[in-house]
Design a binder for these strands. Structure first.
Lengths: 196, 196
DNA sequence: CAGAAACCGTAATTAATATTACGGCTTGCC
DNA sequence: GGCAAGCCGTAATATTAATTACGGTTTCTG
């Protein structure tokens, strides 16, 4: 109700939740443990979030905001410029601890609610943004094709199956260099595919 | 020990395990439930597989065999022919209930053992197979580039982020048409990209 | 066929954990 | 100041599931 302070508290709690998820995984993270880590009470967590899944949903929402903000930072005039800045950031987030933890939680949710929430807050927020860039590139005569298709292709080339492999623990967290290189490759391939 | 009969029994048990995983997910599937479903005893499961993770590892191994066998079926002389037959099959398996169930189990395994096992039994069995096909295509003058790179690119174009989206429940199981179409697209893009 | 080993059904054991409850302290509001 | 609501620490409840145990039966094995 009193947004100022409580909002801050929520941030702390969700921070703690991320920390626990990262350390112990979804199944290994109890609500009580999160409460203890955040020095909050069990009661508060249940009052605020409803249940464990509700808490996860809140994490997803917060992460969506973070992603949106980070990508907004990369706005630019030249489409390729913007893509080359956006690519590594996006890849880093998609493979970063938060997205991975949330995807693992969603994988454990048989209802599929979390997964859909992630999808809506992730892909469906990012895609329009990239689609805009593609449209500008097409207008500028730098690419040809349908903006939506190009967006899908770019995301495929950029992310590919890296995220699933990261989520199941088959690969280690990548460093910044890797993300940069991969993003460059993806962009180069995109240009090649969709040359006017 | 007595391979004939016990092997059959194991198959039944693992069949039941897959069924339960599909219905209830990893966390929702208890070893007892599997035992009951397979009309086996708890004791037997623990004797044979050690623990729950061991059982999952056995499922992974069995699935590896299935994948290998299915892909071996698609052997052919013309590389593109083979790819166009192999693509839909591979995609169907990767997005099928078994692979999805196992990936979900691996996502819940903080040790990463299952994930690595899946990776070794999946990607690392499939990749050399495709790499061979690529080599033949290159020798025949139908493609150019490095076989390993082309394999990675093909897998990226074919699978992309479909598997993670499927694992978190963001998309429904695909039908055969979808797999066929997507495989055709991936192949076309590969040809386009790696034209000699 | 006898003895042993393996297996089934069923239950005990043990640990967590999601969720609820409660007495006491803080804090904003009148 | 005083009170009402919200929050903390702590504990109770209740359920679930991993793992172990055991008597009775089936199945090998010699």
């Amino acid at each position: 109700m009193k947004s100022e302070k409580q909002e801050e508290r929520r941030a702390e709690i969700e921070e703690a939740a991320y920390r626990m998820l990262g350390e112990k995984g979804y199944a290994g993270t109890s609500v009580q443990a999160i409460a203890k880590a955040a020095k909050a009470s069990n009661e508060t967590l249940y009052n605020w979030y409803g249940d464990k899944k509700g808490l996860m949903a809140a994490l997803v929402a917060r992460n969506t905001e973070t992603v949106r903000a980070a990508l907004a930072e990369t706005a630019g005039t030249d489409p390729f410029d913007q893509l080359s800045r956006l690519g590594p950031v996006l890849l880093g987030m998609v493979l970063g601890p938060r997205a991975v933890a949330l995807n693992r939680a969603a994988a454990a949710d048989t209802s599929g609610d979390l997964g859909r929430a992630i999808s809506e807050g992730g892909r469906e927020v990012v895609a329009p943004l990239i689609s805009d860039v593609m449209s500008r590139a097409i207008e500028g005569g730098d690419l040809s094709g349908d903006p939506g298709d190009l967006t899908q292709l770019y995301l495929t080339l950029l992310i590919g199956d890296l995220q699933i492999r990261r989520v199941i623990g088959a690969i280690e967290p990548p460093d910044a260099d890797f993300c940069t290189t991969r993003a460059e490759t993806a962009l180069a391939q995109l240009k090649d595919f969709a040359a006017p």
